[in-house]
Write a protein that binds this DNA or RNA. Structure first.
Length: 415
RNA sequence: GGAGAGUUGGCUGAGUGGUCGAAAGCGCCUCCCUGCUAAGGAGGUAACUGGGCAACUGGUUCGAGGGUUCGAAUCCCUCACUCUCCGCCA
């Protein structure tokens, strides 16, 4: 949620910033609602103040056993007026709040301008790509079984067998251990979250169709960002405890509404996938530095896995709803002859903190914290990348040295 | 599923329908004291938000939402959550 004060004081600046990411903020609708709010709020609060005053006088009269009928008439009049005005005010506040919840975060000044992903900027490339292997992961191994998964659940699910399942488990443990080594505290969290949590991190109310709803009150988490960030919802953090660094491995559930026909083959886009998430909570002045830190933590995984990748910076038009600045990490997929997203690292500034009410305390008072998160990494896509990049062309996959201690062998027989 | 207890500030925890935004303690901040530390003394310290250039001055909030009342942390109703005991269960 963006700061309403910024809108009041600096409307055109905010409007211009949001324009860069393709969001049209209507000046008329905001200003007229807020003007009405101001008038009405002053009236309501004056009435409340009067009522308070008269009620306490009423008490005094009563105590002195004097006549209260005249005073009661006055108060009754106030109450009638108040009831009606208060109702209108509440309606106004509600629509104002909905308006705010709908507005995306303001992009950071440093974010390159652009209207679509075409204009994202490649920051750096690492490792050397090799496209001699043209087979995709499903063609390489039968140990990823889409048909079996379809029998169990439908499309966009997968069953992993034997060594592949074990390889995934190895990747998960390796990633978690790396995160812990880098100072993140590991959490095991619920895989379902309530509405408040999802509003806190920005998935609701706008993106409900992307989520699986498990019951009246619970949704399956689309990322561990939701439970991890919401650990601190409505909390005051002591400044000396910052930055807070959290990690968790969870399955992630996404409805993939609106992506029909996209990435229909194989593991790349699933309703359920494993992910290790990295979250940092920090002071505003530190958040850009922390984003770099978190990005480096995510890249370290790919470096150690010896997979070729590139870092790109998203342009304004491609930023996610809650993000002020985002770097995507893309790993090389030989069968597609291109890089594919495997992590998205974002600084949400105070956008989530404002929604989730995450604050820190220092000498100067209370302040909204900044939140940063990113995958470290998406396990399913990482698995594909390993298969496709490390395939020997006949019957096995090379296991990178960092995984051997977890996997127990330096090669995987693929069939 | 059955029975009971609870939800109050950063934390613990009192609370009489009006003098309660709320005792007390802890924590935190400032100052004093002693070489440092510990201990001790004095004072301060809820959040959110409106109006105002400002000094300042209003309002809301005691789990949530309703109700009773001139007036609700306090009385009534509904809901959520937490805990304890019983039953069932990985």
């Amino acid at each position: 949620m963006i700061d309403i004060k910024k809108l009041r004081e600096n409307f055109s600046n905010v409007q211009a910033s949001l324009k860069k990411r393709g969001y049209d903020l209507n000046e008329e609708s905001f200003k007229s609602i807020d003007e009405k709010r101001k008038t009405l709020q002053v009236e309501v609060e004056t009435l409340q103040s009067d009522r308070k005053k008269y009620s306490s006088e009423f008490g005094k009269l009563k105590a002195a056993d004097k006549d209260t009928s005249k005073l009661k008439e006055t108060i009754d009049l106030i109450n009638t007026d108040l009831e009606q005005k208060d109702l209108s005010l509440q309606e106004l506040m509600f629509s104002l709040n909905n308006l705010l919840l709908d507005i995306p975060n303001i992009p950071d000044e440093s974010v390159p301008e652009g209207i679509s992903e075409e204009e994202n900027k490649v920051i750096s490339q690492h490792g050397s790509v090799d496209s001699t292997n043209k087979l995709n992961h499903l063609e390489i191994t039968k140990k990823i079984d889409i048909d079996l998964a379809a029998k169990l659940s439908g499309s966009r699910f997968a069953v992993l067998k034997g060594d592949l399942s074990k390889l995934q488990r190895s990747l998960i443990t390796f990633m978690l251990d790396t995160a812990i080594k880098n100072g993140y505290e590991e959490y095991y969290v619920p895989f379902m979250a309530n509405e408040e949590s999802l509003i806190g991190t920005g998935q609701l109310p706008k993106f409900e169709e992307d989520l699986f709803k498990a019951s009246d009150k619970l949704y399956l988490i689309p990322t561990a960002e939701v439970p991890l960030t919401n650990l601190y919802r409505n909390e005051f953090i002591n400044e000396k405890d910052l930055p807070i660094k959290l990690t968790s491995h969870t399955p992630c559930f996404r409805s993939e509404a609106g992506s029909y026909g996209k990435d229909t083959k194989g593991l790349i886009r699933q309703h359920q996938f494993e992910k290790i998430e990295l979250v940092q909570i920090t002071q505003p002045e530190q958040s850009m530095k922390c984003l770099q830190d978190l990005l480096a933590n995510a890249c370290e995984i790919l470096d150690k896995l010896e997979l070729p990748y590139q870092i790109i910076e998203l342009c304004t038009g491609d930023l996610g709803f809650s993000s002020a600045k985002t770097f995507d990490i893309e790993v090389w997929m030989p069968s597609q002859n291109k890089y594919r997203e495997i992590s998205s690292c974002s600084n949400f500034t105070d956008f989530q903190a404002r929604r989730a009410n995450i604050k820190f305390k220092n000498k100067d008072g209370n302040h909204y914290a900044h939140t940063i998160n990113g995958s470290g990494l998406a396990v399913g896509r990482c698995l594909i990348a390993l298969l496709e990049n490390n395939y020997n062309g006949s019957d096995s996959i090379k296991v990178p040295s960092c995984l051997i201690q977890y996997f127990g062998s330096d090669t995987i027989k693929i069939n």
